[in-house]
C-alpha cells in the first residue's frame, strides 16, 4: 500500500510505463508486420477485400463530408471576402483549402471513425474470442493475415479516397458559387487556377498516405492488444478512434511544418 502523499508520483510512473509499453508493443507489431510482408501467400489474397472495405465502402461518407465542406467553404469565403477583394478569390480559397487541408484531414478523420474503429473492433473481437490465439497455434502468422492486408490497403486506398473527395469538394464549391452566389464559372476557375501549385497535390497525397498508415495501424494495434472481453473491445475501439484522430491532427501540423 502506497502512502497517499506518493500517489501522484506513482501515477506519473504508471503513465510513463504504460506509454513505454505501448510504444514497445507498437514497435513489436510494426516489426512483425514488416517481417510478415514476406508471407505474401497469406496477405495477398485478402488485400483486395480490405481495399474494398477501406476504400470503396468509405467513399460515400468521404464524398458526403467533402461535398458539404466545399459548399460551406464557398459560402463562407463569399461572406468573408467582401469589399475590395475580387470574387474569384472564392475559387482560390475553396481550391487551396480543399487540396491542402480539409480534403485530406476531414477524410482522414471520417475514416478514422469508420475504418479505424472497424479494424479495432474486428481484431479486438478476434482477440477476446481467442481466434488470434488459434491462428498462432496453427502456426498461421496473424500479422500477415490480419494486419498487413489492412495497413497495405489503407496506404493504397487513402490517397484514392482523398483525391476523389478533394475533387468532389471543389466541384461542390464551384456549383455553389454559380448557384447560390452571384459568380460566374470563369471567375471561380480563374481563382482556382491562379494560385495553383502542383506541389499542393503532392502535399495532399503525402498527408493522405500517412493518415492511412496511422488509421489502419492504430486500429490494428488497439484491436490486436484488446483485453477484457466485450467491454475491452469497446474500449479498444474508442481508443483507436481517439488516438487516430489525435495523431492525424499532429501529423497534419508536422507535415505543414516540414513540407510547406
Amino acid at each position: 500500500m502506497t502512502h497517499p502523499a506518493l500517489e501522484p508520483i506513482q501515477s506519473v510512473g504508471r503513465a510513463v510505463l504504460a506509454l513505454v509499453r505501448a510504444v514497445g508493443q507498437g514497435g513489436y507489431l510494426a516489426a512483425g508486420a514488416v517481417r510478415a510482408l514476406r508471407n505474401t501467400d497469406i496477405w495477398a489474397p485478402h488485400i483486395l477485400t480490405q481495399m474494398y472495405q477501406i476504400g470503396v465502402a468509405s467513399l460515400p461518407i468521404a464524398l458526403f463530408v467533402a461535398m458539404f465542406t466545399g459548399i460551406v467553404l464557398a459560402l463562407q469565403a463569399s461572406y468573408t471576402l467582401t469589399g475590395g477583394v475580387p470574387a474569384y478569390f472564392v475559387g482560390t480559397l475553396v481550391g487551396k483549402t480543399m487540396i491542402l487541408e480539409l480534403g485530406p484531414v476531414l477524410t482522414g478523420l471520417a475514416l478514422a471513425g469508420r475504418v479505424g474503429g472497424s479494424i479495432a473492433a474486428e481484431l479486438g473481437t478476434m482477440r477476446v474470442t481467442e481466434q488470434i490465439d488459434a491462428l498462432e497455434t496453427l502456426a498461421y502468422d496473424p500479422l500477415a493475415y490480419l494486419v498487413v492486408p489492412r495497413v497495405a490497403a489503407g496506404l493504397l486506398m487513402f490517397p484514392v479516397v482523398v483525391a476523389l473527395a478533394i475533387a468532389f469538394g471543389v466541384v461542390a464549391g464551384w456549383v455553389t458559387s454559380m448557384g447560390l452566389l452571384d459568380m460566374g464559372s470563369a471567375q471561380f476557375v480563374k481563382g482556382l487556377k491562379i494560385f495553383f501549385d502542383p506541389f499542393d497535390v503532392t502535399f495532399a497525397m503525402i498527408k493522405s498516405v500517412s493518415f492511412g498508415l496511422i488509421v489502419t495501424g492504430v486500429g490494428s494495434f488497439f484491436g490486436f492488444h484488446t483485453v477484457g472481453g466485450a467491454e475491452g473491445v469497446g474500449r479498444a475501439t474508442t481508443r483507436a478512434v481517439v488516438v487516430s484522430t489525435m495523431l492525424i491532427l499532429v501529423l497534419d501540423a508536422f507535415w505543414a511544418a516540414v513540407l510547406l
Binding site: 483486395l48 477485400t49 474494398y52 476504400g55 470503396v56 467513399l59 486506398m157 484514392v160 483525391a163 476523389l164
Partner: peptide, 15 residues
C-alpha cells in the same frame, strides 16, 4: 467488388 475497387482507383488516378 474487384471491378468497383479497380474503377475507384482508376477514377481517382484520372481525377
Amino acid at each position: 467488388r474487384e471491378l468497383l475497387v479497380g474503377s475507384v482507383i482508376l477514377a481517382s488516378g484520372v481525377v
